[in-house]
Simulated scan of single mutants.
Amino acid sequence: MIDPFSHDVLENPLPLHEKLREAGPVTYLEKYDVHALARYAEVHAALTDWQGFESGAGVGLSNFRVEEPWRPPSLLLEADPPHHDAPRAVLSKILGPRALRRLRAEWFADAERLVDEVLAEDEFDAVPALAQAFPLRVFPDAVGLGKAGRENLLPYGDHAFNAFGPVNDLVEKGQPRVAELSAWVNAQCAREALAPDGFGARIWAAADNGDLTYEQAPLVVRSLLTAGVDTTVHGIAAVLYAFATHPEQWRRLRERPGLARVAFDEAVRWESPVQTFFRTTTKDLELGGVRIAKGRKILMFLAAANRDPRRWTDPDVFDLSRDPSGHVGFGMGLHQCVGQHVARLEAEALVTALAARVERIELAGQPRRHHNNTLRAWASLPLRVHRTGGVTG
């Protein structure tokens, strides 16, 4: 019986994705009693039709219409219009181009400092040294968090994304710390815990202006802390893995450093740090020639759609000459990731700093996967670098 949340599949989901795509536009997974979408056209259609495929019943396997969620639902991810509108509008403004222009020089300088520290060694594990370290430096600063306790963000996010799947060993692994981690995260969302000039303070100011309620403000801050770290960490790890295994693409980037953002988006398409999300049908409908009843959970394989040969030429190839726009790695439509431009800026800063200093980048050992019900992640990514100005190693 097919189980997309088994450890074998989480270790290597590509064979299952191909099998599902070839089986048809809509398939049925008996183990979880859900319909599955693995082709680009149907995944895109479900993502962009929020009226027919709602997020408000939860974007995981659990159906909030009949089950109690483990935490108050996200006002961004697990809500639909009209409840989704005000939080989305506030965050879109706070995380918009003006804010990112202000952060750009600071983040690029911070990336250069971190890379210089890491490159003191020729070999290092890029997951803790770069992919985790940089987002945990710059993003909590931008939100306005204090320095203490930031190590809680990753295990909290890991559990949150595990909880979108079935109650398996991955969920049970995180259960002992749920109360502790939730209490810490909730405390950081309080107005008095946030620096006066960060994203968090601006969310609370939006409540002062009447754009949000005071009950909504801490939940919007929590959405930033939940979705704004893990996904970026795994996206950065994905692009570093891509370059370590595609030396010709690294050479292309070094010749044209302006391709750093394209590289990140291509890595997000190619590796899809967010592998799956669920929706729930709001009515009887037809998709891909299949009738689906109201109230049914739909499992969308974003990663399978991002490698669908019906949409992409040579989809299994990481290629900087490709235009990766249109990938569904950040979702699509009304619920598309509101912080995607922040993630792009973080990745661009780090990759640009590396490209200026590293002539070659390669694997120094066997990478090791981190299993999560929703995320495609690396636990360890050993790299060896050859710096510019001479060969090292």
Rank of each mutant, 00 (worst) to 15 (best):
A41D: 14
H35N: 05
E22G: 09
G24M: 12
G24I: 10
A46P: 11
R39F: 08
T27S: 10
A38W: 09
Y28E: 08
K19I: 06
G24C: 01
H35K: 02
P13W: 12
H44L: 15
V43G: 05
G24L: 11
E30G: 04
P25I: 05
N12L: 12
A45T: 11
K31E: 09
L47D: 07
H17Q: 11
L14T: 15
D49W: 07
A36N: 01
P13R: 04
A23V: 03
R21D: 01
Y40D: 01
D49E: 14
H35C: 00
E18K: 05
A23I: 06
L16C: 02
T48G: 04
E42V: 08
H17R: 08
L47H: 11
A23H: 12
A38K: 10
N12I: 01
V34D: 03
N12W: 13
L16N: 08
A36V: 04
V43T: 07
T48F: 07
L16F: 05
L47Y: 12
Y40G: 09
E30S: 14
P15E: 02
L16K: 00
A46R: 08
E42R: 08
V34T: 11
Y28L: 05
H44I: 09
A36W: 00
L16D: 00
E42F: 02
D49C: 11
V26P: 01
D49T: 11
A23E: 15
P15T: 04
E42L: 03
A36K: 00
A46S: 06
L37H: 09
A46F: 12
L14P: 00
K19F: 00
E18S: 06
H17I: 07
A41L: 10
H44A: 15
D49G: 14
K31T: 13
K19N: 07
K31L: 14
L47P: 07
P15D: 05
T48K: 13
D33R: 14
A45C: 08
A41E: 15
H17Y: 15
E30L: 07
L37V: 06
L37D: 01
R39D: 13
L47K: 06
L37F: 11
P13D: 05
L37K: 04
Y32D: 04
T48S: 15
H17V: 03
Y28H: 15
H17C: 09
L20I: 10
V43P: 03
H35F: 12
V34E: 09
L20G: 01
T48A: 13
T27A: 02
E30Q: 14
A45R: 13
H35Q: 03
P15Y: 10
V43H: 02
K31V: 11
T48R: 15
P15W: 08
A45E: 11
G24W: 07
E18F: 05
A36M: 02
N12T: 14
D49N: 15
K31Q: 08
L20P: 02
V34I: 14
N12F: 09
E22A: 15
E22Q: 15
L14R: 13
L29Y: 11
A41T: 09
Y40P: 01
H35G: 02
Y28N: 02
D33W: 05
H35I: 00
A23T: 01
P15F: 06
E42C: 04
A23K: 09
H35D: 00
